[in-house]
């Protein structure tokens, strides 16, 4: 719950968080080290100085840490935990659904744990989707198209194997597909961050919601063109939002573009925890105004009502969360300061 300066209570559903283990003990090779190092560079580059973490804590944080950072010190009411395996880089997976579910079981009313699968596993991927549905009743999945899998160094959402998986997701009611477009290495003759596969998949699977994390960055312009044509494409604000501190004018330009092309009903707040923590992001976002010149040029505004949608109501809608009922439940289970 974020309490606005005027006393209004704002429901916050953090759409993109992780409970990862990137520690050296879990790293398989240099790629595992470089992966968490890259995340750490995002953290150190864009966090306010007082929010910086030491490397060891960033690599592996505790169940108490995530609870405190999101719900005690942070304003989140709920958080979506994404799963990312990176089996070629990490021994037990980078952030597995089992480990996240175990953590979330301490406060199940506050977490939505999403699954993940790799379409290149063929039949096994289909079996695994069944397993995740039966075992964890997942409502969504996180797709990382840059994941390495043996000889393959990346895949596309419109690959035939992927389509078979999405057909099954649709059948089982796993309707929220979060997509992270990392750099795919092969095929080397294609743009590594290309987002056009989103266009095909969103057109062919109208009943699924396609939430493109980082708004397709570094292909924001291509993403906007796709989102404007597809009613089931959403943008997650992670990575763009932290610019609100370091480079507020760039953030203003990006959010203006997103409001113009994608629209206020299809943008989702995400802290990308533990790269960033939600406390400062939400506070700065609530107090942010798009400078007049940018707002006028684009003909958009960022009102309190729009901010409230982005911070929680939009995600609640696609995850079938009754916000008023949820607020009552959470009021009956206030955050507890964990004994450390």
């Amino acid at each position: 719950m974020y309490k606005a300066p005027n006393g209004k209570e704002i429901f916050v559903l953090d759409g993109h968080t992780h409970f990862w283990d990137g520690s050296p003990e879990n790293q398989k090779n240099i790629h595992g080290k470089q992966f968490i190092d890259c995340f750490y560079a995002y953290h150190t580059n864009l966090s306010p100085p007082e929010q910086l973490w030491e490397k060891a804590r960033f690599e592996k944080y505790t169940e108490d840490d995530i609870y405190r950072d999101l719900f005690v010190d942070g304003p989140d009411d709920m958080a979506i935990i994404q799963s990312t395996y990176l089996r070629d880089f990490y021994k037990d997976g980078f952030s597995s659904i089992e480990r996240s579910t175990s953590m979330a079981s301490r406060h199940p009313e506050r977490f939505i744990v999403n699954g993940a699968f790799d379409p290149r596993d063929g039949e096994k991927a289909l079996e695994y989707i069944h397993y995740m549905k039966e075992e964890f009743d997942i409502k969504g999945v996180k797709m990382y198209t840059a994941e390495w899998n043996g000889e393959s160094k990346g895949w596309a959402l419109n690959d035939p194997d992927a389509y078979r998986c999405f057909e099954l997701c649709e059948k089982l009611g796993i309707k929220n597909i979060h997509v992270h477009k990392g750099p795919t290495i092969i095929p080397l003759n294609k743009d590594a961050f290309d987002v056009h596969d989103v266009d095909y998949a969103a057109t062919d699977f109208q009943n699924l919601n396609w939430i493109i994390e980082h708004c397709g960055l570094p292909r924001l312009d291509d993403f906007c063109w796709i989102a404007v044509q597809e009613t089931n494409v959403y943008g997650g604000l992670a990575v763009a939002l932290p610019f609100i501190h370091a480079r507020p004018r760039y953030f203003a330009e990006v959010i203006a573009e997103l409001l113009f092309w994608v629209g206020e009903d299809k943008l989702l707040f995400g802290s990308d925890y533990a790269i960033w923590t939600p406390q400062w992001l939400v506070e700065k976002f609530w107090n942010f105004q798009i400078p007049d010149d940018i707002a006028q040029e684009r003909g958009v505004q960022l009102t309190d009502e729009i901010k409230e949608k982005i911070l929680g109501l939009n995600a609640a809608r696609i995850y079938d969360i009754d916000v008023d009922a949820k607020k009552k439940t959470l009021a009956g289970a206030p955050v507890q300061i964990a004994a450390e």
């Binding site: 750490y40 995002y42 580059n45 292909r219 924001l220």
Partner: peptide, 25 residues
Amino acid sequence: RGIRINMEFNGALCKGLASSRYKEV
């Protein structure tokens, strides 16, 4: 405008990442 904003944003991100890549807290 959209193309420019994307490029400028990426430029700022790349410069920032390049500067913080070998830093620790």
